[in-house]
């Protein structure tokens, strides 16, 4: 996707939503494919070469979560889910099925593009096995297990580093609490959920300018955490 125009597949049954998404992505030099139904969307995803999929959670013929699951069975293409009034459980379920991120309607194009670019970058990093993740003031050197804020190396405990590492691998996209707990402690459990909150607090003290108003390690309430560029 580096040398050619990236292709985004929009799967949404609402014409007006597709219209503004098309305009927004076109302005950012994406090539846009549109489908109205889950069936057609799945077919397009299989037959065409697609770099990014934007799928609505409530399609007339199929649950968006089902689409995510079916695409993930054979592809690692970035998927972002659009939803109207999704509960936290729904969001977590989507992410666990393998969606890269979600945005809740109504959303701004800026927000969606930020999520989309983050997902595309992650995809590219995996493909090219890049090992340094730069996010505003924060940079994470995954190969050397080193974390820098404004070029100053930050000493981290092993668990703190593991937290940064997992978040950095998904930089810009949300990572669920469950996923983090599993990656850091290896098991789920309420105690670990509590530890995760404490660990995040400790990490914020080391990497945030004002740990009480975090800009880099932000919380997605009820869902998980996200590393952002701090803008």
């Amino acid at each position: 996707m580096n040398d050619t125009t990236p292709v985004v597949l929009l799967i949404d049954d609402d014409l007006q939503i597709r219209r503004f998404l098309r305009a927004g992505f076109n302005l950012e030099h994406f090539k846009v494919l549109e489908e109205e139904t889950g069936e057609a969307g799945l077919r397009s995803a299989t037959l065409r070469s697609v770099d990014l999929i934007i799928v609505d959670l409530n399609l007339p013929d199929m649950d968006g979560a089902e689409i995510v699951k079916r695409i993930r069975a054979w592809s690692i293409v970035p998927i972002i889910v659009l939803s109207v009034r999704a509960s936290d459980e729904d969001k977590v379920r989507l992410l666990e099925y393998g969606a890269d991120d979600y945005v809740v309607k109504p959303f701004s194009m800026v927000e969606l593009l930020a999520r989309a670019r983050a997902a595309l970058r992650r995809h590219a990093r995996t493909a090219q096995s890049e090992s340094v993740v730069n996010l505003g003031r924060l940079s994470v050197d995954l190969a050397n297990r080193a974390v820098f804020v404004d070029t100053a190396r930050i000493p981290l405990s092993p668990k703190e580093y593991r937290l940064v590492q997992v978040l950095a691998q998904h930089a810009g996209n949300v990572v669920t609490h469950n996923h983090l707990v599993k990656e850091i402690w290896g098991v789920r459990g309420m105690q670990n959920a509590h530890y995760l909150r404490i660990l995040v607090r400790r990490l914020r003290r080391k990497i945030e300018q004002n740990p009480k108003q975090p800009r880099i390690l932000v919380s997605e309430l009820g869902v998980g955490y996200r590393l952002t560029t701090g803008d």
Binding site: F20, V84, S108
Partner: peptide
């Protein structure tokens, strides 16, 4: 849904 189109377009 229409509100999402409005907000998205305006953005």
């Amino acid at each position: 849904t229409p509100l999402a189109s409005i907000v998205g377009s305006v953005s």
